[in-house]
Design a protein around this nucleic acid. Structure first.
Lengths: 206, 206, 206, 206
DNA sequence: CCCTAAACGAGACGGTACGTCCGGTCTTAAT
DNA sequence: ATTAAGACCGGACGTACCGTCTCGTTTAGGG
């Protein structure tokens, strides 16, 4: 627990400090013990909270972990706007890779996948999160298109998915390849692809 | 239990039918209840097997699931050789997407990720599997390079990871986008990217 | 809640209506769900009262239950004085058995035993109650002795305990044997015993 | 835990040593911490047993405690046969009072009452136990009757209940009055009553 | 006539025990 | 020696209550 001093009670209003302490404890334990080492009891003890206070506000342990992820990872990566597709892409991916490469975050992301596996509610929350991330990257690419850098915007959605696909593949299976240089390489390849495919992508299946 | 008729005992030899029944039961339960609905008891009951028979041959429940995956998914996708990069890529991805799109297989793949999360041994096995898959696709692309279709082989590894990245992203988060047309679209984009980067990656950003 | 209309607030004075509602709710829930089905939350909800209003005036849930018992059972049985030991005893026991035989009261008595089990304060209160009850019956018997009906008062205390012993045994284990006829039978036996011991154990009552 | 050495496993047969250890631990904790200090976790830890092993064989914590009582208290009091009503009664009551006066047993008896309150199954088990105890004392008195010591056997059942009534009243409310002398006094009074009421008890209600 | 003080309904909180579920180990009896 | 069966220890899960605490509201009664 970061805060050994007792929290002030808030009467019959939800105690925001307890909420924050729970999410912080969940994130910290995740990073420290790996996702299977996180226990509701441990979260509660670490946050200096009763177990029921967790279950009063989240339906399950996994929901807490997912919430901890979304709330912490959401604001981590800004949407750059340098005027250059290549630069914007590189910044976006570099920051994203950096954030995902931190073990604490990586564990949280994996835990979120696991958590969403069986709980439709959590799957929905995770999906929302992922949609927002894709939208953020799409915006970067669409901005480039409106500047006239790309001949067509038809390949944007797929490029976005290639970017996040590589990201998640490495989060899951190759965490060593989440360095800034890896992000730059990916940014270069996607930039080339977006420029190159502006003419003839739609001839897909003859 | 699929097989109500009692299996013949095999005395002091390992009962191969039991082994097969266990893997089949694991796969079936995975497809039916999702990966958190699979328990050792259920596998044993479903396979008509004692619990110890499972633990005699696999070190843990997760190992069974991973085994079920590897043994079933390994031989599913052949390495095509039509003489055309575009065609080879499309065939490979179409078959891969098709296999991964079957719910039973998809659940097995996800379960494998989960299983590997905390067990280094299983992570190694899964990694071996993934390396073999990447090698298979690499071979397709390298063959194209040796035919002179691509100017350089520098982008091959990244393209492979983009392909599997999109695959896994969709397995995890967008199972609806695993149709043959989606595979074709991805094949087209990657083909263009590989051709483009072979001549002039530096034309990307002026 | 029996009274759906909101109680009038009483400002900074204790709300007597709330107190009564709490005791009534406790008694009602006791009779309805048995003593383990009574919770503070349920009492509060049933009485239309905040939980703290209970804890403001009673130190624990058990104290409420014991209070409900004492206040309701105390005045139920009068001390008869007909001039005849046999008649007085019969009246006293009949009324006592009748009161204890009502399920609501019986549950309250049992709950009191349970409540007193671990809380010394409540045990003291219950003990006071029981002493008062024994004193009431003792008075009946001693009055008979002062009338000269009994040769000696040496057996009175034991007879009192036999009476209440049978009562409690039946409250706890044989509620069906709390009918008026059972009380009369016990009164007869105790009368005979008191007469017998007053003169001499050896004479079998001529 | 009394036995730190690991118990031998018994395969798929119930482990009788574990059963005994559980009952012993329950009784010991009851005597040590009072009935509200007994926890399933503590019983399990004290007995060196998994919690589930308790729940596999008993439906609830209370059932364990009741079982501990019945199995331990059953054989404590023999049925005496000296040829004298007074002597038999005194022996029986003295032994009974002695056993009930031991704090461990007293706690168990009270816990049994509490446990039986809401669980019909437990109530049945406790009732069986009490019926057996009453039958044991009845036998003593009936034997006296068949020897011709008593004119009638009509007061036997009530006398039995007076004896156990006083016993339970004191178990619950006056544990100090469970000494051998108290048992002797009760035996004397009951003997006198049985001799005296042989003629005229049934005139109860005119 | 307002202002303070206490009681009230409401309900979140820290904590403890419950009874369930499952993982992985061990033993027996049958094959 | 291998199997089916299933008891066993350990430990996490999510629920139910207890008794405490704080809010914002309501009223009575003193200044």
């Amino acid at each position: 627990m970061s805060d050994t001093n007792a929290r002030a009670h808030t009467g019959s209003r939800r105690n925001e400090a307890a909420r924050a302490a729970i999410l912080a404890a969940a994130a910290e334990l995740l990073a420290e013990h790996g996702s299977s080492g996180v226990t509701v009891d441990r979260i509660a003890a670490h946050a200096g909270v009763g177990r029921q206070t967790i279950y009063r506000w989240w339906p399950s342990k996994d929901a807490v972990l997912l919430d901890a992820l979304v709330h912490s990872a959401e604001a981590a990566v800004p949407v750059p706007d340098t005027g250059s597709l290549r630069a914007d892409l590189e910044i976006f991916l570099r920051e994203t890779f950096l954030a995902a490469g931190i073990e604490r975050n990586r564990q949280a992301l994996i835990a979120a996948v696991v958590a969403a596996r069986d709980d439709p509610g959590l799957a929905g929350s995770l999906d929302d999160f992922l949609i927002r991330r894709r939208a953020a990257l799409s915006e970067v690419l669409r901005r480039s298109h409106s500047r006239g850098e790309l001949g067509s915007d038809s390949g944007i959605e797929l490029a976005v998915e290639q970017a996040f696909g590589v990201l998640w593949y490495r989060i899951l299976f190759r965490p060593a390849a989440l360095a800034p240089a890896d992000a730059a390489e990916l940014a270069a390849a996607l930039t080339a692809q977006l420029h190159g495919t502006s003419t003839g992508q739609r001839t897909a299946t003859p």
